[in-house]
Design a protein around this nucleic acid. Structure first.
Length: 891
RNA sequence: GGGGCUGUAGCUCAGGGGGAGAGCGCUUGACUCACAUUCAAGAGGUCCAGGGUUCAAAUCCCUGCAGCCCCACCA
């Protein structure tokens, strides 16, 4: 094997190999180690319907960052993966596929054969998704992989259903539900999306039975009139008070319906009179119950009209609307039509307009279940990050209505309810009964319907760990620590997991909900198939590597907010990987002798205190130390983006830009002992930085690690760095900071004077005391990094002769003779500008310091800091003024 | 109808009670022996507007304007 990294950073060379090694090592597996604190995340199971998209990539990256970080901190981590059967979504896809390939409908194929195809689909696509997770670098425990329809999950679903039924929390009832005509199934409220649509209000006259004018009613859905059973008016409404109890006729149909008084109609809305259609409107349904009205349906499940619609029977609901309105108009019953924007319910899967329909379905009684879930959030047992999502969570729970859980589909968990065909007995049981419990008949039939896909997802945090058995996993890893998910799924999933878990286990399923936003395209639009603006994470990985993608996603977000996917950011992340790669290559190069063996290294275990560290060593160690505490702190607050950015800055701006440059002269120098020290620090800091970066960029860090001295893979042996007081050198650190500032000033002067970078300059530095000592100690750095031929130190301005360009840093003044290169006029203007800036700053600070309120009330440290700034500005100003008068004489 | 988010450099966005940050872009210069996927130097901002709290507000509170999102039985 090569002793050093290849010349160019090419993630394809190692990402796949490393993942295979990791997986084989077993390091991703939860060890159920009782001596360690567990840290658990369950993966929101991706649907088996398709491929991983950018949203998954974000979701998984965040989970993996947390998991890897905690693993490095010594927790017994478990990230439990799996996939979701996605009942309705998969059923639609599989049916489409069958129609395309075999030209058959699912009904023609039959339930059994259809399910066979669905399972085949699951095998193909479920497997593909887990492969994609591997490409991302997900460090999840594949030995515990689950599927919402595997044996264990099935058992949990049945158990859950039966227990709720036994507690009277599940019931079967004839109620108004949301019906999707395309999917041919009922939907829960959460599965209906509302969209404002341009529509019309039709004002229609219902003539009086007695030949009177009758009453005008406004409706947006005239086609439901065939199911009208009454007209309701508010008893307070004086316009209609006299008509209560009378009857009107359904226009053109001729059926007489009563006008009745009910508090539901709002006199302010429409005409104040409402047509009552109990079978097609939830409000009307309630009114109907109050007045004991019949509930005739006029629309079929496929959204065509039924026989009640007379000559319109068989027509599509909208066709019928058109024809019906035209006929009403011709007959003079249409009073007027108004344009109106009306919110329309649509199926979240197929976007077809949902029809409210009366139907016999299974429901979960929510009120009692919601209470503990509300309490868990209020008591702080369950927290949301960021906090504001708690409001959304609570609002939903407080407004919650009963949950319709039965679906007229085949792909899913079949409802464990059995009906006796002889006596009509309903049995809800864990096992299919052979005979009826009541009459003993053998004519038993299981409910045809399956459960809402979210019914099984709701159990995911504990069904995957073996519930209802009290398994060792459940005991050790449950409740989980954090759930990572997008805000779009709080209602569908988070809320339901919480109340299900509280009801079944008595515990919250997780302590924290870490909510992230959506990945949008560069223009801020939602990525969607219909827009065709989706970006495939796998293509990105192929081009830029998984690390670049992960780093971009992890550092590009702020909690709870959406993220725009911009290619230039991705490139900059790839460049960062490249930078780290090359810096590491440089380090390794300097660790190897001619034979390709590592030079002897001072060992950290021996005690770094014994090494003779130079100031720049102490500076970088101090910076590292500081970064370690800041980064850990950010991670603990779930501020992953800030933590990642901080690692980035440490590596690029401090280690690469400064430390490596500072240390080069020593590496190329003669002092062999000092070289050992330099190499040691170089490696020590690099290793710690790799550790800090590893949760974000696992592949490149592991790959580099393998080339560094030491045994064992990073995943196995690298601990999360901790703050080390022994490696904190504030005084030396300050000295180095002064030298860097001086170097920057000299570079600045050079650029201002347009002196060629290759031209060596002479510098004269005026300074005294500690500052002089510090800069003197850094003379060689000044020469190297500012390209100076000579540095002269003076303590008295009198010694300055021809030097003209100057800069002032804290504690020193720098003069550079530039021979004839300098434009005095420009120099004068530059100094003037600097003077103005300093004066303004001094004035600001002086005003502040003269303010007695400030002195009295502000914290002492703040006052002291401001005073120091004031004095510093004053001293600099003084020097600038001297320079100004000097330059003025030359003009 | 209810609730929420956002408004900061040309662009995309961080940050957040003690006078402003990144990436990209832009300007100038350099193929400097790890890296041109790089290095160095720079320009560029009334931190949406108004009011309040405070010794101190871009930051906290209120109002307004602008944009986005979610919820809502939608006659």
């Amino acid at each position: 094997m090569e002793k050093n990294l290849s010349k160019t950073y090419d993630p394809k060379q190692f990402e796949k190999r490393l993942y295979e090694e990791w997986e084989k090592s077993g390091a991703f597996q939860g060890k159920r180690d009782k001596s360690k604190t567990p840290f658990t995340i369950v993966m929101p199971p991706p649907n088996i319907t398709g491929q991983l998209h950018m949203g998954h990539a974000l979701d998984h990256t965040l989970q993996d960052v947390l998991t890897r970080w905690k693993r490095m901190q010594g927790f017994d981590t478990l990230w439990l993966p799996g996939t979701d059967h996605a009942s309705i979504a998969t059923e639609v896809k599989v049916a489409d596929k069958i129609r395309e390939e075999e030209g058959k409908t699912k009904e023609e194929l039959g339930r059994e054969e259809f399910l066979k195809r669905a399972w085949e689909w699951k095998e193909t696509y479920g497997g593909r998704i887990t492969e994609q997770c591997r490409k991302l670098g997900d460090s999840c425990d594949w030995s515990r992989e689950r599927f919402t329809m595997d044996e264990g999950c099935n058992r949990a679903v049945v158990e859950f259903f039966v227990r709720l039924y036994e507690k009277n929390l599940i019931y079967r009832g004839n109620r108004i539900i949301n019906w999707c005509p395309s999917c041919g199934t009922s939907l829960s409220d959460a599965e209906v999306e509302h969209d404002d649509k341009n529509s019309k209000y039709y004002y229609i006259r219902y003539p009086g039975e007695d030949g009177s004018e009758g009453i005008v009613v406004a409706t947006s859905r005239p086609e439901t009139m065939f199911g009208d059973v009454a007209i309701a008016v508010n008893p307070e409404d004086s316009r209609y008070r006299d008509m209560i109890g009378k009857k009107v006729l359904l226009p053109l149909i001729g059926k007489a319906i009563p006008i009745l008084a009910d508090p539901y109609p709002d006199p302010e809305k429409g005409t104040g009179a409402v047509k009552i259609t109990p079978a097609h409107d939830p409000n009307d349904f309630e009114v109907g119950l109050r007045h004991n009205l019949p509930q005739p349906s006029c629309i079929n499940e496929d959204a065509t009209m039924n026989e009640l619609a007379g000559k319109y029977a068989g027509m599509d609901r909208y066709e019928c609307r058109k024809a019906w309105v035209a006929d009403l108009e011709a007959a003079g019953y249409l009073v007027k039509v108004e344009d109106m924007v009306i919110p329309v319910g649509e199926c979240y899967r197929c976007k077809d307009v949902v029809e409210p329909m009366l139907s016999e379905q299974w429901f979960v009684r929510m009120e009692e279940l919601a209470k503990p879930a509300i309490e868990a959030a209020k008591s702080g047992e369950l927290t949301h990050v960021p906090e504001r999502f708690e409001k959304i969570y609570l609002h939903w729970l407080e407004e919650i209505r009963d949950w319709c859980i039965s679906r007229q589909l085949w792909w899913g968990h079949r409802i464990p309810a059995y009906y006796c065909d002889d006596c009509g007995e309903i049995m809800v049981l864990r096992e299919a009964p052979k005979t009826c419990a009541k009459c003993g008949s053998g004519n038993i039939r299981q409910d045809e319907d399956v459960l809402d896909t979210w019914f099984s997802s709701a159990l995911w945090p504990f069904s995957t760990m073996g519930w209802p058995e009290q398994t060792p996993d459940l005991e050790h890893y449950f409740p989980t620590d954090v759930l990572v998910t997008g805000y779009d799924i709080i209602f569908f999933w988070v809320v339901r997991m919480v109340f299900s878990s509280l009801a079944m286990t008595g515990k919250v399923p997780f302590h924290h909900v870490y909510v992230h936003g959506l990945v949008r395209d560069a223009e801020g639009r939602k990525m969607s198939k219909s827009l065709g603006n989706g970006i495939d994470p796998l293509e990105i990985i192929d081009q830029y590597g998984a690390d670049a993608l992960r780093f971009m996603l992890a550092t590009g977000i702020s909690p709870g907010n959406d993220l725009r996917f911009k290619m230039d950011r991705l490139e900059s992340c790839r460049n960062f990987a490249n930078k780290l790669w090359n810096a590491s290559r440089f380090v390794i190069m300097n660790l190897l002798d001619e034979k390709g063996d590592f030079f002897p290294m001072a060992d950290a275990a021996e005690g770094i205190e014994k090494l003779v560290l130079k100031d720049e060593d102490k500076w970088i160690l101090t910076r590292l130390n500081q970064a370690v505490s800041e980064i850990t702190n950010k991670m603990e607050k779930y501020e992953l983006a800030l933590a990642g950015q901080r690692v980035h800055d440490l590596i690029w701006n401090e280690y690469c830009d400064w430390y490596i440059e500072l240390v080069k002269a020593r590496l190329y120098g003669e002092d062999e002992d000092d070289k050992l020290v330099a190499r040691f620090v170089l490696v020590k800091v690099l290793k710690d930085m790799l550790a800090l970066l590893h949760p974000f960029m696992p592949f490149i860090t592991e790959e580099i690690w393998g080339y560094l001295p030491g045994d064992g893979g990073m995943l196995i042996v690298a601990p999360w760095p901790v703050y080390d007081e022994a490696l904190n050198f504030p005084a030396e650190s300050d000295r180095m900071a002064l030298i860097m500032e001086t170097i920057r000033s000299i570079r600045n002067i050079r650029a201002e004077a347009e002196a060629a970078p290759s031209k060596k300059l002479r510098a004269v530095i005026l300074s005294t005391g500690d500052a002089l000592k510090a800069i003197k100690a850094g003379e060689s750095y000044l020469k190297n990094l500012a390209n100076l031929s000579e540095v002269r130190f003076i303590e008295d301005k009198g010694q300055i002769q021809e030097e003209i360009m100057s800069a002032v840093v804290h504690g020193a003044e720098i003069f550079i003779p530039l021979d004839d290169l300098v434009d005095y006029q420009a120099e004068y203007q530059r100094l003037e500008k600097e003077k103005t800036r300093l004066e303004a700053e001094r004035a600001r600070l002086s005003a502040k310091l003269e303010n007695q309120e400030f002195i009295k009330k502000a914290p002492e440290a703040v006052v002291a800091a401001e005073r120091e700034k004031f004095e510093k500005a004053g001293a600099m100003l003084e020097k600038i003024e001297e320079r100004l008068s000097f330059v003025a004489k030359k003009i």
